[in-house]
Design a protein around this nucleic acid. Structure first.
Length: 427
RNA sequence: GACCCCAUCGUCUAGCCCGGUCAGGACACCAGAUUUUCAUUCUGGCAGCGCGGGUUCAAAUCCCUCUGGGGUCGCCA
């Protein structure tokens, strides 16, 4: 029976590296129809926090990484104690104060890693290992080995930073008489500068990416590409499709650098393909948080705004940023755009436009565009000449979706109001 | 410092195991087309097997140095 586990410690948020480890474990279990165990390593009573645990579980669910069993090490202290005492009785361990320490016999240790092949260590370099700490709690390696053995984990898939722990743990398996599982050590994920991924080099918590509006499918898609490839030059791949092709032996050995550029691109790909109604639903919480809409939001009118921006977004927060003009009374003027496009006095032209716009019966995209072009022709101006000024006056920005659609979206009253305000001229 | 891991375009990677296809794709970047702006999209381009030795008719691929990067050396996990 194939059984793997992801064993986070609730002393911090679920970070990108942990998520990737969880993902590979999950894929390994699913492709082989095995079990995926989640084990909360909360032996450090002081640093472990319920809020972190909840956040980790939440992030896992959000990513779609469901587990078959869950355990808490804090509930298993008796088991650890019992086995440590047994080792004490057998003379394989000794006491130092209240602590129980394992004697490490001298021998050569061979680890066969599924990703890296054979790795040998000399146990002469390994110190005797603390099994139970003076405070009665188990040391990490001991609890880890006990659980992996008792939970019948068939393959331990974890980060490369655990390679050095492995020979120590193998000594514990041997002392306990447990069967040693398979091991696979995943390459680490590094920050943009090649050093360890940290808050300094960008967001590390999965929840941070969620808050920025990355889709779980996209994040998972990006993460699986770090150290593994689905083949056939495919990069945008669903989890289901990826699982079918997953093989732990095909995982890369070299560390990978996390690239926010590529994540943005992949997320954009997903955002482009997503159903518009679904996109509206995803956007609502972001809009509510910003105070742009309230509880009883009109989805159909929201949908028309979203449609304008669909295909331009690389993450959900982009919408909040770029579509703000549709939700607030006065546009948030971009200083640079304002200075560049509204510096020249265009009140005369604006006045005429305002008059013509006011006279329009149906204020739709096409009639607005037609009216605009007619006016420009009458004034002897090229159509492009006033576009920027109007865009900035109406949306506050020099960039955005089709101008005439933006104006139609705002409606006659608001659009004219903003045009009037631009040069404080009243039509 | 000791021990361990790793090394293909700037980045993620295919190819490596079972030596022989101009070293393929993607992101980023640059140029052009489309677009009233920006983005999208399309087309094209730039760019890589870390160094040095072997083995071989033939090496990105196998072996060894070196160099470089990373990890671990807690009664943290």
């Amino acid at each position: 029976m194939v059984k793997v586990r992801f064993a986070p410690s609730p002393t911090g948020f679920l970070h990108i590296g942990g998520a990737r480890t969880a993902l590979f474990n999950w894929m390994y279990a699913r492709v082989q129809k095995g079990k995926f165990v989640l084990r909360i390593e909360d032996t450090d009573q002081v640093r472990s926090k319920k809020e972190f645990e909840e956040e980790i579980l939440d992030s896992m669910k959000w990513l779609g990484l469901d587990w078959d069993e869950i355990y808490y090490q804090s509930e298993r202290f008796d088991i650890y104690k019992e086995h440590a005492t047994k080792l004490l009785d057998e003379g394989k361990a000794y006491k130092e104060g209240e602590a129980i320490i394992l004697k490490i016999p001298q021998q050569e240790i061979k680890l066969y890693d599924l990703i890296r092949g054979e790795i040998t260590f000399d146990s002469a370099l390994i110190k005797d290992q603390v099994l139970m700490k003076s405070d009665g709690s188990p040391a990490y390696s001991f609890a880890c080995v006990m659980d992996d053995a008792l939970m019948e984990i068939s393959c331990v898939i974890r980060g490369e930073d655990h390679i050095s722990n492995t020979p120590k743990q193998m000594m514990i398996y041997n002392a306990l008489g447990f069967k040693i599982p398979k091991f696979a050590h995943l390459p680490l994920i590094m920050g943009e500068d090649g050093s360890r991924l940290s808050k300094r080099t960008g967001a590390v918590a999965v929840s941070d990416y969620r808050k920025e509006g990355f889709l779980p499918d996209a994040l998972v898609n990006y993460l699986m590409l770090l150290g593994w490839s689905p083949g056939n030059n495919q990069e945008v791949v669903s989890l289901d499709a990826a699982v079918k092709k997953f093989s732990i032996k095909k995982v890369n050995k070299a560390a990978a650098i996390f690239s926010i550029d590529k994540l943005n691109w992949i997320n954009g790909q997903y955002l482009k393909k997503i159903d518009t109604d679904k996109l509206v639903d995803l956007l609502i919480p972001f809009l509510q948080e910003k105070g742009y809409v309230d509880q009883d939001v009109d989805k159909s009118s929201l949908k028309s705004i979203v449609e304008l921006f669909k295909g331009r977004l690389s993450k959900l927060v982009n919408f909040i940023e770029w579509a703000d003009f549709a939700f607030i009374e006065k546009p948030n003027f971009d200083k640079e755009a304002q200075e560049k496009h509204l510096a020249q006095d265009r009140s005369k032209e604006f006045k005429i436009l305002i008059e013509r716009f006011s006279a329009l019966d149906s204020f739709d995209k096409d009639s607005i565009e037609e009216t605009y072009k007619t006016v420009m022709e009458e004034l002897g101006l090229k159509p492009a000449e006033l576009v920027h000024a109007i865009r900035v006056a109406v949306t506050g920005r020099a960039i955005g979706p089709s101008l005439f659609e933006c104006i139609a979206l705002l409606g006659k009253e608001k659009s004219i109001q903003r045009l009037e305000a631009a040069f404080s001229c009243v039509g």
